[in-house]
Simulated scan of single mutants.
Amino acid sequence: MNLAFIRYFLAVAETASFTAAAERCRVTQPTLSAGIARLEGEIGARLFDRARRAELTEAGHRLLPHARTMVEAWQLARTESRSTQRARLLRLAIASTLPIPATLSWVASAQQRAGFDIEISEGTADAVADRWRRGRCDAALFPVRRPIDQDELVALWREPYVLAAATGHRVATRDRWSVKELAATPFVLRAACEAQDDLERLFAAEGVRPRTVLSSADEERCGAAVAAGLGVCLMPRSLLRPGLVAAEIRDVALERRVVLAWRADADGDLVQTLRETALAHPWPGRRAGDARLAFAR
């Protein structure tokens, strides 16, 4: 059980608000919601009644005293440990367009194996890549559209961008669509999408300008809008969720590769742990052979 998820649970229980809890924990609301969902999956019960201002359910009330005990015990153990030896700190930057639950479970797996403290920052793919290049983080996980000539980097998986639609949407009835056939189809735009400029150029070249029903950098909100049937959305395969189906835009092949990069002077043991756990992790967008990806230099 990840202690971060317990902290998320306590923050929501004490504030009765997912938004306020996310601010207290210094994470995005989708990150906090994903953590709560993982915790509920491990507990096997709903912890909050979201229809009533995030009130605790009966299971949530039962967990509350145990959660406080776990956090207090961890803080005591951490204080005692640090009195004799300072823990290693890993500053990790993660692109906001990656699948959050899978990313968090990878981080937790690596942390459990190597026993380090961690500070996570989020941003667009470009912002995270820039943070890594400037040496402002120890490691970074982000997608790229073009090869990077760098030794301190490993490619984890390659995936296409697909046209996502709700199962009951018109677009879900076929596997492939032309740009002109999508002219009257409302779109949900992922504002942080690395392929957004390519999509806009593609539509402009065909003289097509579909209506936008939502433009947001919040991946959770965009996915929810598509699942509700408000519109379709271009998204990487790994962001598909239950209730969504994928189709192709005819004659278009957009893809990205997700890479793990690190500073040249980063802790070698930590880098090895990050590499090994990332390559072995069951990422939702990965297919057979992706673990052997390599960029041509």
Rank of each mutant, 00 (worst) to 15 (best):
L3I: 13
R7N: 06
A11E: 02
E14S: 11
E14W: 03
A16S: 13
A16Y: 06
F18W: 03
R24W: 05
R24I: 11
C25V: 06
R26N: 09
V27T: 01
T31L: 07
A37N: 08
R38F: 09
E40M: 03
E40Q: 13
E40A: 12
E42F: 02
I43N: 01
I43M: 04
G44D: 05
R46G: 08
L47Y: 05
R52H: 13
R53W: 13
A54E: 14
T57H: 04
T57I: 02
H61D: 04
R62A: 09
R62H: 08
L63I: 04
P65A: 05
H66W: 10
M70F: 10
V71H: 07
T79D: 12
S81W: 12
T84N: 02
R86Q: 15
R88K: 11
L89I: 12
L90H: 00
R91W: 08
R91G: 03
A93Y: 11
A93C: 12
A95I: 11
S96A: 13
S96G: 10
T97W: 04
L98R: 02
I100R: 10
A102M: 01
A102E: 07
L104M: 11
A108I: 05
A110W: 00
T124Q: 06
D126I: 10
V128T: 06
A129S: 14
R134P: 08
R134T: 15
R136W: 03
C137R: 00
A140S: 05
D149K: 10
D151W: 07
E152C: 01
A155Q: 00
W157D: 02
R158V: 10
R158K: 12
E159V: 05
P160M: 08
P160K: 04
P160F: 01
A164C: 08
A165F: 04
T167S: 10
T167D: 10
R174D: 04
D175E: 14
E181Q: 14
E181I: 00
A184N: 09
T185M: 14
T185S: 04
R190D: 05
R190G: 12
A191L: 11
A195G: 10
D197S: 14
E200F: 13
R209T: 15
P210S: 07
R211L: 09
R211A: 14
V213T: 05
L214Y: 05
S215C: 12
E219N: 07
R221D: 11
C222L: 06
A224H: 15
A224M: 12
V226H: 09
A228W: 12
G229S: 07
G229Y: 01
L230Q: 15
G231C: 07
V232C: 08
V232W: 02
M235I: 13
M235H: 04
S238L: 08
L239I: 07
L240W: 06
R241W: 00
P242A: 14
G243N: 10
G243P: 10
A246Y: 10
V252R: 13
V252D: 11
A253K: 06
R256N: 02
V258C: 09
V258H: 01
L260K: 00
A264W: 04
A266S: 11
G268N: 08
L270N: 03
L270F: 07
R275A: 03
E276F: 02
A278H: 00
A280Q: 05
P282Y: 11
W283C: 07
P284A: 14
D290L: 01
R292Q: 15
R292D: 15
R292H: 15
F295I: 07
